[in-house]
Design a binder for these strands. Structure first.
Lengths: 143, 143
DNA sequence: GCTCGACCTGAAGTTAACTTCAAGTTCTGT
DNA sequence: ACAGAACTTGAAGTTAACTTCAGGTCGAGC
C-alpha cells in the first residue's frame, strides 16, 4: 500500500476528510483516481498536509499557503531543502507578530495605572495619535 | 450638545455607524432615542467603544467583551478604576499569546535545518508528540 | 454475491463581525 | 417650506475555512 485512501490520509494527518477534499478543491493537494473514482494520495502528500497545517498555525491563509506551494518544483517530489526554503520565510512573520503583541502589552501596562482608555490621549486606544491635533473630541481610534 | 448622534460617535471613535448599530444589537453599547426615533449616545459611550476596540485588538471576541462589560457597575458611569480592573485581566492573555508564538518560532528554528515537517518526529508539526507510540505512520497532527 | 463501511458529488449550512441595500423618515440649514 | 444630508429598519451579502447533508457508488471481507 504505497498510496493512501482519503480515510488513511485523514487518520494520519489528523485532518478531516472533508477538509482534505476542500484542500484539493483549492489546489493545495492532489490525488490520483481509481477506476472507481476514489482518491488515492502519494505518501508525499502527508508532508504537504503537514506544511499546510503548520503554515496555518503561523498565521497564513490557505491562499497564501497555495502561493507558497506553487513555488515548489513541478514534476518531482519536493526535497527537505525545498520545504526548509519555504518554512524559513515564516520567521519574520512570527517576529512581527510577537513584536506587535509586546507593544500592545507594554501600552496596556502604561494604561493600567490610569484606567483611561481616553480616545484623545491614550496611546493604547489611539496608537498612532493621529487626529490628536484636531482639537478636543475630534479623535479617531486606530482602524 | 452633551449627547452624540450615531454619526458623531462614529466620527470620534473611528467605528462605522453600521458597526455601532451592530454593537448595540449585541448589547455592547446602548442609546436613548429622540422623539423621532434617532439614537443619542452619552459621552461615556465613547470610552465604552474604546474599550471594545482595544479588547478586540487583545484578541477577545465580542461575546467575551460583552461578558466583561456586564461586570461593570449598573446605574452609574464606570470610573477609571472600573476600566482599569477590566483591562488588567488582558495581561495574562497577551503573555500567553506571546509565549505560544515564541514556542512556534523556536520550533521552527529547530526544524529549518532539517526541512523535515515529518509527522512522526517533528515537534513543530506534532507539538504534543501524542500518538507517536502508535507505531510508524499512525500519527496525528495537532488539532 | 452480499453486506456494510468507506467513498463520491454538489449544495447548503456554520461562525464572527460586520457591510450593503432598499425604502422610508427625520433633522438642519437657508 | 423645502432640499438634501443624516438617520431608521430588516434582510441579505461578505469572507475564510470548513462541516453537514442527501442521495448515490465502491470495495473488502465473509
Amino acid at each position: 500500500m504505497s498510496e493512501l485512501t482519503i480515510g488513511e490520509l485523514s487518520e494520519r494527518s489528523g485532518v478531516s476528510t472533508s477538509a482534505l477534499r476542500f484542500y484539493e478543491e483549492r489546489g493545495l493537494i492532489e490525488s490520483r483516481r481509481t477506476t472507481g473514482n476514489q482518491r488515492r494520495y502519494a505518501k508525499a502528500t502527508l508532508r504537504r498536509v503537514a506544511f499546510v497545517r503548520t503554515a496555518q498555525r503561523v498565521g497564513l491563509s490557505l491562499e497564501e499557503v497555495a502561493d507558497a506551494l506553487a513555488t515548489l518544483p513541478l514534476g518531482r517530489t519536493p526535497t527537505k531543502a525545498d520545504w526548509a526554503r519555504l518554512s524559513r520565510s515564516w520567521r519574520p512573520r512570527l517576529d512581527e507578530q510577537i513584536r506587535r503583541i509586546e507593544l500592545l502589552r507594554d501600552r496596556l501596562d502604561g494604561c493600567i495605572g490610569c484606567g483611561c482608555l481616553s480616545l484623545r490621549t491614550c496611546t493604547l486606544v489611539n496608537p498612532g495619535d493621529y487626529l490628536a491635533e484636531d482639537g478636543p473630541g475630534a479623535v479617531r481610534l486606530q482602524p
